[in-house]
Nucleic acid binder design. Structure first.
Lengths: 113, 113
DNA sequence: TGGTTATATAACGCAACAGGTATATACGGT
DNA sequence: ACCGTATATACCTGTTGCGTTATATAACCA
């Protein structure tokens, strides 16, 4: 999953979080993460490129500015992955499970869900 | 979020996926990802260490074997992050939003959820 | 206790990555 | 056309990270 690969970086995650509030220009984003992480405009620009190439964000030239936005499908992918891993706890524990596994899980589980 | 940092790697994500089916020994995991990614036992072991230190997995010595399992909280964190980014589309688009932003979003959105 | 299996660590090389400065490119205004 | 702003790219460098082989540590078994 290209998406999660790209999101394995604090700066890039922050960029996506900023975009969660709506579209922002590359400049606004660069300023924001620049301030928070102390990185330069080119550095921010390259993070945006990574996100773009991973399909996490979209960008549209708007005059002299370039507007970035999050691609909903990307967020869905992340959520779907988490859910896929999570399915385990949501009941349906068929075959494969060993007694030991079950026992340990019982020992561990008394919260969540 | 330490968790997503650790998950920014295909091998580690695969390990977590394998653990989604229940607990597995370090050996089983090493064999599996070893076969799939062509990496050695020590390599797998180090990936497990990263996951452990990031709080993504737990490990318990079970005799000569060490059993690994996914920590539900870690998966929750991922899901929560995705949801947090996602909140944007689920209605509530107050201020900040420009007409342009709204337009672009409309253009883009016709699927999801 | 000696051997075997399971897992982790050590030491090291190499490739990928992120960051910086300098610069190119594109657009808008005047 | 020219200048200033916005954004991206080039190029170089330092660091990080992953992989490998060799080895240590620990448990189980005969």
């Amino acid at each position: 999953m290209q998406v999660m690969d790209a999101l394995g970086d604090p700066v890039r995650r922050r960029l996506v979080e900023l975009l969660a509030d709506g579209e922002r220009s590359a400049g606004q984003l660069a300023t924001a993460v620049g301030a928070e992480f102390g990185i330069s405009q080119p550095a921010a620009s390259r993070h945006l490129r990574v996100l773009r190439e991973a399909g996490v964000v979209d960008s549209v030239p708007q005059g002299a500015v370039r507007l970035y936005s999050v691609r909903p499908e990307a967020v869905d992918e992340v959520e779907a992955w988490a859910r896929r891993v999570r399915r385990f706890w949501d009941g349906h524990l068929d075959a494969l499970e060993t007694e030991i596994a079950r026992g340990a899980r019982m020992r561990r589980r008394h919260d969540d869900d």
